[in-house]
Amino acid sequence: MKEISVSELKQWKEEGKKFQLIDVREPFEYEMSNIEGENIPLAGVVIEAEKIAKDIPVVMQCRSGARSANACMQLENNFGYNNLYNLKGGILAWAAEFDSDMQVY
Results as ranks from 00 to 15, higher is better:
residue 105 Y to L: 09
residue 95 A to F: 04
residue 58 V to H: 00
residue 34 N to S: 09
residue 63 R to P: 00
residue 96 A to L: 10
residue 59 V to M: 08
residue 62 C to H: 14
residue 30 Y to G: 06
residue 81 Y to R: 01
residue 14 E to P: 09
residue 43 A to G: 06
residue 80 G to C: 12
residue 87 L to A: 13
residue 44 G to E: 01
residue 27 P to E: 00
residue 97 E to Y: 10
residue 57 P to N: 08
residue 50 E to D: 15
residue 82 N to M: 10
residue 102 M to W: 10
residue 82 N to F: 04
residue 103 Q to M: 05
residue 72 C to T: 15
residue 96 A to Y: 03
residue 58 V to F: 06
residue 32 M to I: 05
residue 18 K to E: 05
residue 105 Y to F: 13
residue 46 V to D: 13
residue 73 M to P: 02
residue 100 S to K: 13
residue 93 A to R: 15
residue 61 Q to C: 11
residue 104 V to Q: 01
residue 10 K to E: 09
residue 83 N to I: 00
residue 62 C to E: 09
residue 6 V to N: 12
residue 89 G to E: 10
residue 10 K to D: 13
residue 47 I to T: 01
residue 15 E to V: 00
residue 103 Q to A: 01
residue 6 V to Y: 09
residue 87 L to T: 05
residue 92 L to N: 15
residue 7 S to A: 09
residue 17 K to S: 07
residue 97 E to V: 06
residue 47 I to M: 03
residue 70 N to M: 07
residue 89 G to L: 08
residue 48 E to S: 09
residue 35 I to V: 14
residue 90 G to S: 07
residue 4 I to G: 15
residue 28 F to H: 12
residue 44 G to Y: 04
residue 14 E to R: 08
residue 95 A to Q: 14
residue 90 G to E: 07
residue 102 M to S: 04
residue 54 K to T: 12
residue 20 Q to M: 12
residue 47 I to H: 14
residue 45 V to F: 04
